[in-house]
């Protein structure tokens, strides 16, 4: 399978224009001696939901804050529609963002929170009520945010991101604290915005499974470095299947399977065969008269792929 990672240098120059394109090019950020982000490059295009994944502490939030001009990179940089965030003419109409699961003054009402932003961004005040209705918060509009549940805060954060009807959405862990119905609602909304309205959606998560039905593409980082970039379909395809076999004659079975070109691994007192065909493995044993005590199909799920990818990056880090 082709890794979509481009060789260093090919993504270096932010391409001019491209409404809605987020481009991160050779981004690097150090906090003291800690390298939080190390030569990270990727591109997110309109019309797709891009999942930005990595374990806790991988540098996801730092990257998003660099894209949004809140953190100054040590080297490299990020552009939206070919410009740095601080140079955007009308930032809220270009990019809508939600960080820290939304940030609110607990003593301010949801409506007032949005009206504060409306005034700053030159957006008509009635837009505050529109986005509150859009995220289903009309009822709670005049309640203080301090009394909100996590899910309601999340919705308000999203309302803030949608305030300027932007072409680009950048959301940091938007699903945290949402119930299953809320997650489903969020998924529908984001896919609608990307696919029907051609918006660019970049959302971070530390759970790949959460992204499986939401994201079209994924960018996976670990230790501040890119470990994988590609479509969700490719990633799902790389989740391998195997068959677990327990036998009192493991050496004979390994030999028999090796003749058929199968890859076999000893795991404790069991063998793990790289194959999705349980019947074929059983037949090989039967043909050679090998006694079997267990024959189980194993399916690696996306989370295992994710763990493997990010662990490989960790190991590399240790060796270097």
């Amino acid at each position: 399978m082709a890794l979509v990672t481009e060789a260093p240098g090919t993504t270096a120059v932010p391409r001019a224009g491209g409404a809605g394109i987020i481009e991160v090019a050779h981004l690097q950020k150090r906090f003291g001696s800690l390298k939080a982000i190390d030569d990270l490059s990727f591109v997110v295009r309109p019309g797709q939901v891009c999942g930005f994944l990595g374990p806790n502490g991988a540098g996801k939030t730092t990257t998003l804050r660099c894209i949004l001009g809140l953190i100054t990179p040590t080297a490299g940089g990020a552009t939206i529609a070919g410009r740095h965030y601080a140079e955007l003419e009308d930032p809220l109409a270009t990019v809508g963002a939600m960080l820290d699961a939304g940030s609110f003054h607990p003593g301010r009402t949801a409506r007032d929170h949005l009206r504060v932003l409306c005034a700053a961004a030159g957006i008509a005040d009635r837009r505050a009520d529109e986005v509150l209705a859009l995220v289903g918060l009309t009822e709670g509009a005049r309640r203080k945010v301090g009394n909100f549940s996590t899910g309601m805060r999340q919705r308000l954060g999203l309302a803030g991101a949608l305030l300027g009807d932007p072409d680009v959405l950048v959301l940091d862990e938007p699903a945290t604290g949402l119930d299953p119905a809320g997650i489903n609602w969020l998924r529908q909304l984001l896919r609608h915005l990307a696919h029907e309205r051609n918006k660019t959606v970049l959302l971070s998560s530390h759970l790949l499974s959460e992204m499986e039905h939401t994201a079209d593409r994924v960018v996976i980082i670990s230790q501040g470095r890119l470990v994988r970039e590609g479509t969700m379909a490719e990633l799902v395809g790389s989740a391998s299947a195997s068959v677990r076999v327990v036998t009192p004659q493991p050496d004979r079975l390994i030999e028999a399977l090796a003749e058929r070109g199968a890859t076999v691994e000893r795991v404790g007192d069991a063998l793990v065969v790289r194959s999705s065909d349980t019947a074929a493995v059983g037949k090989v044993a039967f043909d050679h008269g090998i006694e079997l005590h267990e024959l189980t199909s194993l399916h690696e799920d996306l989370e295992d792929v994710f763990l493997e990818l990010t662990r490989a990056a960790d190991d590399q880090e240790l060796r270097s």
Partner: peptide, 11 residues
């Protein structure tokens, strides 16, 4: 942490 939305609206 409202400094974040503040600076996003006015970088």
């Amino acid at each position: 942490r409202t400094i974040t939305p503040t600076l996003l609206a006015t970088p």
